[in-house]
């Protein structure tokens, strides 16, 4: 790996300060990088800290949450040192984001065109007319044949899949270097899900941008990602290339996730193979955070939390089974 990463996250901690002095460690010491043009997937169950990680990169964490430690470096510049104003020039321009709920992610009282044009005009020095032409062009690119009409329509006139297309058009309008997609297809019909993910992959090729793809669907990871991070309890528990995660699974949690995938060969009874649920972020077990649910739990797992170690080249695991 000779190239410099596009985005480098080190020691990121984002905590939520709850009532009665409890602290939810939603993201608790996360390190990873994304290379230019690559697709990095983050997988993990609900509550494992995927969304908070991505919102931290955008610095869109609201109270009572706070980024308390770490560095987030985009092309050699630490984003956490930027002022609010400087960040607003980066959001939407260098890093764009799309969300899970296309039904509520667009402002209901403005037209699609208005919302795309406003993004373009915020970051690029263009006239209203040029912005409009660009918006129509973008809508055509994301698959609206009658783009000239769509710019005058309101979000409620579009279906969920169409809204997500419009969101994608908006997100790529300034040709970002990194697109963060937080479960972009989860809320959609199964038939539409693949279309949206294919569209993202196509846009990635076209614009040569990197994608941080958040999902809890390992099937999606297999098809669209280059590398994958497995998150549990606000930490990364396994990190490797996509082929490795399926053929050379190491962490018991990853094994559990894979076992819960429906597949033709397996008995359907094995679905949902991990027993129990994710512990809440303000009361993790003392040792390894997965110890309360791990089938291979050992004594030392209950005493201290293992580090994330590189056990094979380009394959990191946080588990005492491997050191």
């Amino acid at each position: 790996m000779t190239q410099n990463p596009l985005l480098d996250v080190e020691g990121l901690k984002t905590y939520f300060y709850l009532e009665d002095n409890q602290v939810a460690k939603a993201v608790d010491g996360v390190d990873f990088y994304i290379n230019p043009g690559e697709t990095l997937a983050i997988v993990g169950e609900s509550g494992s800290g995927k969304s908070i990680t991505s919102l931290s990169i955008m610095q869109l964490i609201n109270k009572p949450g706070k980024i308390i430690d770490g560095t987030i470096t985009l092309e050699e510049e630490n984003l956490l040192k930027k002022t609010g104003k400087q960040m607003s020039k980066i959001r939407g321009n260098d890093i764009a984001m799309i969300f899970q709920e296309p039904m509520t992610a667009l402002n209901p009282v403005y037209t699609i065109g208005n919302q795309i044009m406003e993004t373009i005009r915020k970051h690029k020095n263009v006239s209203k007319k040029e912005a409009q032409e660009r918006a129509i062009e973008l809508l055509r690119v994301v698959g609206f044949p009658r783009a000239e009409e769509i710019i005058n329509e309101y979000p409620h006139q579009l279906s969920g899949g169409m809204r997500q297309r419009a969101m994608i058009a908006m997100a790529i309008s300034c040709e970002p270097k990194l697109l963060i997609a937080d479960e972009p297809s989860t809320a959609l019909d199964v038939t539409i899900q693949a279309q949206i993910l294919d569209l993202l992959a196509e846009m990635k090729e076209r614009l040569d941008m990197a994608i941080l793809l958040i999902t809890h669907d390992l099937g999606v990871v297999a098809e669209y990602a280059d590398r994958v991070l497995v998150m549990y309890g606000g930490q990364i528990v396994e990190e490797t290339a996509v082929e490795q995660i399926f053929e050379n699974t190491k962490h018991p949690y990853t094994t559990g996730l894979l076992d819960s995938l429906p597949s033709l060969e397996k008995d359907m009874k094995r679905l949902g193979a991990i027993k129990g649920t994710v512990p809440p972020a303000h009361s993790f077990p003392k040792g390894c955070r997965f110890s309360s649910r791990c089938p291979h739990v050992m004594e030392r797992c209950l005493e201290s939390n293992p580090d994330l170690n590189e056990v094979e080249s380009n394959h990191k695991v946080r588990c005492y089974l491997y050191n």
């Binding site: 955008m58 104003k85 764009a96 402002n107």
Partner: peptide, 14 residues
């Protein structure tokens, strides 16, 4: 607190 405000912030609106 709504999603579309988060979207507006995410696209760089002041």
């Amino acid at each position: 607190g709504s999603d579309y405000i988060r979207t507006a912030r995410a696209k760089g609106m002041t």
